[in-house]
């Protein structure tokens, strides 16, 4: 498959910023993304699953160049995004969009819906008349279920519900028919009854519009529904990646297994066993090791070598890799 976007050994370390009066010294540096490499193909949906603090949001922000990395590359159409000149950057902005998690934060409260959604048009399609822009905005809003669009276009974000705002955000992202969209937890703040519709819509948009998606989430179930392939993220590292069906039905990495076992099953017969899954080993549920395999302190298969060295990616099946010494 043709590669749409390629991430090569991407790293991002956060620490106290160096400044005149503060020398960056002993204070702890946090490795939010520690050497991630993967790609997203044309017309493909890849989901990234990780808990809070796993660095998945940082990864998304790096990929659209809202942040600069400590090292590593993101290649779009074969070109490193961080080395792009102005014209290349404009092309990149046109083709790569992002949908943010918080619908209450992602629209400027002072701009009408029309102004927010038409902004990319004002920048990239300056020749369009106001009529043409209004028609395009209306069409996109209606395709996201905001019907009739005229009722919404001239409202301010404050007059819309969270669900409606997220529809607006998605419509905005789709405006220029981008080739690649990163959706960072797009439904986690919406009501349950809305989530299914939004996920269906995004999947349909990708399938019909030929847009590639990177779907970032903490919820492995929706990741499974959305993605062709799946990456499991733990403390800045990809610990398992492969086809969605392989990863969810035959998980290899112990963390992936725990993650899947922890998803509540809507079945009372299995309820008791769900609560009593033995995932002991680690004393705490959120701890992680600072050297070697980051999951070692919580892993019940932990071995000596896990604490000494970071496991590389091992081949565990067809297009299926896991970063665990169990398979080395």
């Amino acid at each position: 498959m043709e590669k749409m976007i390629e991430v090569l050994n991407l790293r991002k370390t956060f620490g106290p910023a160096r400044s005149l009066l503060r020398r960056s010294g002993k204070r702890r540096q946090v490795e939010a993304v520690a050497g991630a490499s993967f790609d997203v193909g044309t017309n493909e949906i890849v989901s990234i699953v990780g808990e809070s603090g796993s660095g998945k949001t940082t990864l998304g922000r790096l990929m659209v160049r809202l942040l600069d990395p400590t090292s590593g590359e993101v290649r779009f159409d074969g070109k490193n995004v961080f080395g792009m000149n102005k014209t290349e950057m404009i092309r990149f902005r046109r083709n790569v969009q992002m949908i943010l998690q918080d619908p209450y934060d992602s629209l400027n409260p002072l701009f009408s819906i029309f102004a927010s959604v038409s902004k990319p048009l004002n920048i990239f399609e300056k020749h369009l008349s106001r009529r043409e822009k209004e028609e395009m905005v209306a069409e996109h809003l209606e395709s996201m279920g905001l019907k009739p669009a005229e009722q919404f276009m001239h409202k301010l974000p404050g007059e819309l519900s969270g669900g409606q705002r997220q529809r607006v955000s998605i419509a905005r992202a789709m405006m220029l028919k981008p080739k690649f969209i990163i959706a960072d937890e797009p439904v986690s703040m919406l009501d349950v009854s809305l989530r299914a519709e939004m996920l269906n819509r995004m999947k349909k948009l990708s399938r019909e519009g030929g847009t590639s998606f990177l779907f970032i989430t903490h919820d492995i179930s929706s990741a499974k529904f959305m993605g062709d392939r799946m990456l499991i993220f733990f403390r800045g590292r990809i610990v398992e990646q492969g086809k969605t069906a392989d990863v969810t039905e035959r998980p290899k990495h112990p963390y992936t297994k725990v993650l899947i076992d922890s998803v509540p099953v809507p079945d009372p017969e299995r309820g008791a066993s769900f609560l009593n899954i033995d995932d002991a080993g680690g004393s705490s549920d959120e701890s992680y090791s600072t050297s070697g395999c980051r999951f070692a302190s919580r892993c019940r298969f932990v071995m000596d070598r896990c604490r000494r060295a970071e496991p590389p990616m091992f081949d565990v099946g067809e297009e299926h890799w896991a970063s665990c010494f169990l398979y080395g």
């Binding site: 992002m98 629209l107 400027n108």
Partner: peptide
């Protein structure tokens, strides 16, 4: 750090536009 500032940058807006259209009025 607000989301709409990030969105504005993603829409292709330059630094000055972000500062005077998104940050300043708010």
């Amino acid at each position: 750090e607000r989301g709409y500032v990030a969105v504005s940058k993603l829409s292709g807006a330059g630094n000055l536009s972000v500062m005077f259209k998104d940050i300043f009025p708010n």
